[in-house]
Design a protein around this nucleic acid. Structure first.
Lengths: 152, 152
DNA sequence: CAAAATTAAATGTTTATACATTAATTACAA
DNA sequence: TTGTAATTAATGTATAAACATTTAATTTTG
């Protein structure tokens, strides 16, 4: 469905406005889909993202601040997200020896297992998207980067 | 800045995953910018969107349900948003004569004035984006529509 | 027509978000 | 060194989001 139909708006002021609305709408759409995906596994999308960041460290520790830098939404509170994951025994948390202000966060085997489980489902999702074709996807990624770049 | 740099992730599993992350990130980015825009005017982006929907009616009434259908984020509570705008005296609200379950919502002159004021700023924003070029923007809009279409 | 189903909006409630502030530690500069 | 600034994480708090439930009105159906 075109963005016009999705929000029942027959025309847009200009292509720029349409793009802004289309981007926000598509972002929301994806977030909602992903949230729905995660729900049966008992974690939120943000929590999953933190887990994925930790997984990407391959066993190495990472501070809460570094997690924030790698998150999609910098505004959300990495400290509290880690707290939630800790409560679910998916990550461990120890004070950093070199800098006692910092906290080293690791993923636990249970966390890795959960990621693996969810990623099977996400791969299905990815397969659907791949119908668009590699070239189109590359172009989309480029346009998105350029789009953000255009805004100071 | 490319999405890789934005979230300090050197590589992605595949172009599909990268596109999903890029879309969510760009959507967040825009929402945050717009929120910052609106803040000095004392309304949120969602409230502004409702105002804009009402403005689009050109004086005609619209029900709360119709507002929801036109909103970017269908999950948010149009009833409460209208309530906030009502409290700010930007809209008026009367029971629909034909269907007493429904509520007719109108924009008030104060609401229109506020929109006009904010849109001056948004036009500046649009100008920046227009640097991308009409063709690129059209292509982006098409790719976004196709992207959502690919997901069942 | 009357009961059941559906629809529209409002409300309740739990959790999350957006910020500001705080507390502890480290870095830096006079 | 010693006080000041900066950094890191945690916490406080007001508001918003995500649903579920409720209330009232309308529509459908037996």
């Amino acid at each position: 469905m075109s963005i016009s139909d999705e929000i029942k708006q027959s025309s847009f002021k200009n292509e720029e406005t349409k793009a802004v609305i289309n981007l926000i709408f598509t972002g929301n759409f994806l977030v909602q889909r992903q949230q729905a995906f995660m729900k049966p596994f008992g974690i939120t999308m943000q929590q999953f993202n933190v887990l994925r960041i930790l997984q990407g460290q391959k066993g190495q520790a990472i501070s809460v601040l570094s997690i924030t830098e790698r998150m999609l939404d910098k505004m959300s509170n990495a400290s509290r997200l880690v707290d939630k994951l800790f409560a679910k025994k998916l990550v461990s948390r120890v004070q950093c020896k070199k800098d006692r202000r910092a906290v080293d966060v690791y993923i636990l085997p249970a966390g890795s297992a959960l990621i693996a489980q969810i990623e099977v489902h996400l791969d299905e999702f990815g397969k659907q998207i791949s119908q668009l074709g590699e070239e189109n996807l590359k172009q989309l990624n480029e346009l998105l980067d350029q789009f953000r770049e255009s805004i100071t």
